[in-house]
Design a protein around this nucleic acid. Structure first.
Lengths: 342, 342
DNA sequence: AGAGTTAATGAAAACATTTGCAAGACTGTT
DNA sequence: AACAGTCTTGCAAATGTTTTCATTAACTCT
């Protein structure tokens, strides 16, 4: 029992391989009766077409490469799911790679994906190594930056403006009268999202005449456990901030747990704001105030854009789409204690 | 500027295409000096080998298919990450597909992955449609069930025994003296994990002479929001259970938030236990008591097993590996109120 | 009924690689 | 210096499709 190939099916159906191929790729070109015969033969033989051979012929590989920093936490789960669902519905399969926030490793992954002749490539963020860009340019593969938006980005991008996200979060805290503010962020070296949010937030505070104390600025990776540990230390000190601006909801979640552990009342004596509005943020107690990133919407839009780009291989691919951010006020932020006059 | 292929590189290096191929696949067969030349030519031309052509020749495609119910929440995030890291380190790339707990849709996805000639296939759980099994058997692709373990499974499997998980959780509640017990589970129709856990737990309760009240059994999908909503309703009633056994930590998290919202003290007046020990469960306040599934360990072991299986294409692939479960007692469970004598 | 279209199919070249086989180039040995 | 091995390398066939072009069969219109 050898695996049936297209000529086996063709013989079984009494037609030529060309016709079988047409049944699968341009069904409208073959006579309904013949099509029936062929479909029956495919069914009967258990034939499964070989995409590798198809890809080799210069046609589509029907795969799309997606490179994310990590799938191991909530951050990208929703985007990845929405993106996958969208392209999958159009017949594409996802080749997934994750680099753990290391742009050198990203280069190697992109190379591997190109070896597989992906029809297009999506990456998270706009920051990438020169090698990565060169590689993709040479191969002429549509490339899309996911999750970020910048009006003057070099890449097509679909996502949010992280500077705006940082600004909105910071302005919310300022509006509530907070002046003793801590920021909990990951290393911003290989992470443009975190960097943009942080600098924008810092600018807002500076403009409001707020001086950021070094001892209230902490650096932790995107991990609930490490965020909680760091905040435990920060908040246990005699002299603690009245508000915490967190790089994203994962970190904010850690901060809230730390406060709960220490018996610090939220929002009465501490305000916490996150960015993202991940699954579960709305359900927490206290519910998390955050700047909502419409992950699902971004994933779907990106999926559609990339499929469209694949359909027009000639045209240069450029799109810049900004998804709207929204401040979601919930229970984790409140008016600064020192503002409340007795 | 045309994309360089292997004969272009060969000409540039002054050798035959065969030699270039050998440099990439069997470097030890070519003279070091020639190898240098060829590597230089590859570098200089920006050549990227074509895996499709390689796969077509009957060689490896260097891809592994992974089918999960969903990537959109914490449940599989850690396993997927560990699995991906492991196979990626061995030169494989992951083709990812998700079916949203629908086994018919799974069939179609498996078919798509086989079209891409994946070298092996990993799926979550042991429950799959007959069509799926037939397909994979016909194609002779190594298949591994991830996440589940059964001593007499038809498939190679690496994971935990969900019956044991259910039993451990139930026994913990029984040992604490709880008799008024609620269970919060998803639909078990297409989900053998949930089913096994539930039946095992039910058996334990029955053996302990505990009668499960229908009004305390709720069905919700794996979603924090929906779990919280359902538990809010369940716990608001006059007559509520003293303990909740949740199908996994995501649901348990929802339950804890519901209790917090209602001002029900945990564990004083309500115990909650989950299954999984997902990221964040240890950090919650109160920290979640749960049956730990060593996700990372399972992911790594599965990745290694599947790579090994690919290396031995002749031998039948069978492995059954049971990962150890562990009851992690934290702050969300306590002795039943009615057991505490004044 | 015959000419002109249109629809349906097949033949064969092309796609980019890998590998079995065979031949040429060395090495060391006597 | 000739011989037997052992290394290296190239030739050419094979892999499973898709698509262009050509051919045949089937309509349509006057």
């Amino acid at each position: 029992m050898i695996k049936p190939d297209i000529v086996f099916v063709a013989k079984l159906a009494g037609v030529s391989p060309a016709t079988v191929s047409r049944v699968m790729n341009h069904p409208d070109l073959v006579h309904p009766a013949t099509r029936k015969k062929v479909e029956l033969a495919i069914e009967k033989s258990g034939y499964i077409r070989n995409r590798a051979a198809q890809a080799m012929h210069g046609k589509r590989s029907a795969t799309i490469g997606l490179v994310v920093p990590t799938v191991a936490n909530t951050i990208f789960a929703e985007v990845v799911q929405a993106f996958n669902d969208t392209v999958s519905a159009q017949g594409f399969t996802l080749l997934l790679a994750s680099h753990g926030y290391d742009l050198d490793s990203e280069y190697r992954l992109v190379r591997k994906l190109l070896e597989h002749r992906v029809d297009a490539l999506a990456v998270v963020g706009l920051d990438h190594s020169a090698g990565t860009f060169r590689l993709i340019a040479e191969q002429r593969v549509p490339l899309l930056a996911l999750w970020n938006y910048l009006p003057d980005s070099a890449l097509p991008c679909i996502g949010v403006d992280n500077r705006e996200a940082g600004r909105m979060a910071a302005e919310h805290l300022v509006a509530l009268g907070h002046r003793r503010i801590g920021m909990v962020f990951p290393a911003t070296f290989d992470n443009d999202r975190a960097r943009d949010r942080k600098t924008a937030a810092t600018a807002v505070f500076r403009a409001a005449g707020i001086e950021l104390q070094d001892r209230w600025q902490v650096e932790v990776p995107y991990s609930i456990a490490q965020a909680k540990a760091a905040c435990l230390e920060l908040l246990a000190a005699e002299d603690r901030p009245s508000a915490l601006l967190c790089a994203n909801d994962v970190i904010a979640q850690g901060a809230i747990y730390a406060a709960a552990r220490l018996g610090i009342a939220i929002p009465a004596s501490l305000s916490v704001i996150g960015i993202g509005d991940f699954a579960g943020s709305a359900q927490m107690e206290p519910a998390l105030t955050t700047v909502r990133i419409p992950a699902q919407q971004v994933g779907i839009a990106a999926g559609q854009a990339i499929v469209t780009a694949i359909g027009r291989p000639d045209a240069d691919f450029m799109i810049r789409s900004r998804a709207e951010l929204e401040l979601i006020m919930r229970a984790s932020t409140g008016i600064a204690a020192e503002m409340i006059r007795p």
